[in-house]
Design a protein around this nucleic acid. Structure first.
Lengths: 205, 205
DNA sequence: ACTATTTTTGACCAGTTGGTTAAACTATTT
DNA sequence: AAATAGTTTAACCAACTGGTCAAAAATAGT
């Protein structure tokens, strides 16, 4: 049994991985329990054995996925580097995470439209607090390092420019890059620097 | 019959309005033909009488909705006002349209993930051409009015800051404004100016 | 007023979907 | 090795869903 666990992933892990794919690609309403079972290579009844219902399985996935969507800000921002390096590091890192989870942004944005409770739930359960983020910028404004503005707008601007281009990948690919995946990936790569410069240009005193 | 048409909307219009609501809120997979019929106050079979299938009805809605999502750039940009006024007008106008269609951005972003063809289709059918948009900025760069950068990034930045805050409304409301709708609406209103200033600060020479 | 055409409806259908169950299989305990 | 507990499966089910159809109702044409 020990050997099996090492070679073959545990059933629960296999289910979670399959469910994550299915839910991320198709959303709750589009996802099919049968498809999840097939993807995991198991019998459909096993899904209900491990996770009572579709709703339950979905909640598990949403929570695990939520972590990737809301950047673990604390570690990034507690380091000793300068404000601008923190900002640069954050943007680089966040775009990187998202571009490796291409379905994530659109999935979250879609699901929360009719289930905002899920968000609040996940936030509480993970102790996520946006004010850590906001306060960092507020401090730099008070120190006169960056221009004064409502921090909420600044933060939303930064997040917008990181998240939207991934959520809108099919649009951008289709309209700008003639559906060339490589060119689009290159575009995202460039943004790690461009977004930082764009923000700094705008807020630096 | 003339009188009836004036008082009561034609069946087709009623269906389209009901379907638009249902599809925008729930997406294709979450929408129910029965619910659309109820919303329109008609029998379900009528839906199939006017639009053969759910798929067909969806296509009709997607196309009509697409127009609002992709700003009618031409008219805005052909006017004689200065570049910066065009930009200001565009951002103001676009945020306004989106905030009046709160489900629109997340709907489009979700649906295109697995149906990119729909996008291409609607684009062709409506003769939408993104290069009109891109070229305007390129011209101003060549004229030395704004800083040089890859126009694609500039345009994506602007669109990001207009679209994302609407798509992410439930997140922003929940995390920043304690679910206060009015404060959130005020926030969007402010962005009409803030986004413009943020962009201009960054690109003005 | 009568007919032909279009619009609307209720009843119905076949396929799908999430979920259940009893039995088979596997591993663990004694 | 026998009993016990934990996994896995195939078969099944009730509810729902998109879609059909024949008949009824409304409208238009004569």
């Amino acid at each position: 049994m020990v050997k099996i666990k090492e070679i073959e992933k545990s059933t629960e892990i296999k289910i979670l991985e399959a469910a994550k794919q299915e839910f991320l690609e198709r959303g709750f309403d589009g996802a099919r329990m049968q498809k999840i079972a097939e993807r995991a290579g198991i019998n459909k009844a096993l899904l209900h054995y491990y996770f009572r219902s579709k709703e339950n399985l979905f909640k598990a996935i949403f929570q695990s996925v939520f972590e990737n969507f809301f950047p673990k800000v604390v570690k990034t921002f507690q380091s000793e580097i300068s404000f601008f390096d923190k900002l640069k590091f954050f943007i680089d890192n966040y775009i990187d995470v998202l571009s490796k989870n291409p379905f994530l942004p659109a999935f979250i944005l879609h699901e929360i439209q009719l289930r905002p409770e899920m968000l609040i739930n996940s936030m509480k359960e993970q102790g996520f607090n946006p004010s850590v983020f906001l306060n960092m910028f507020k401090r730099e404004m008070e120190n006169g390092v960056i221009c004064n503005m409502r921090v909420e707008h600044l933060v939303v601007n930064i997040l917008s420019m990181c998240i939207f281009p991934v959520a809108a990948a099919p649009i951008i690919k289709g309209m700008i890059f003639k559906n060339d995946d490589i060119e689009y990936q290159q575009f995202l790569e460039e943004r790690k620097i461009i977004v930082y410069e764009f923000v700094v240009n705008s807020i630096k005193k």
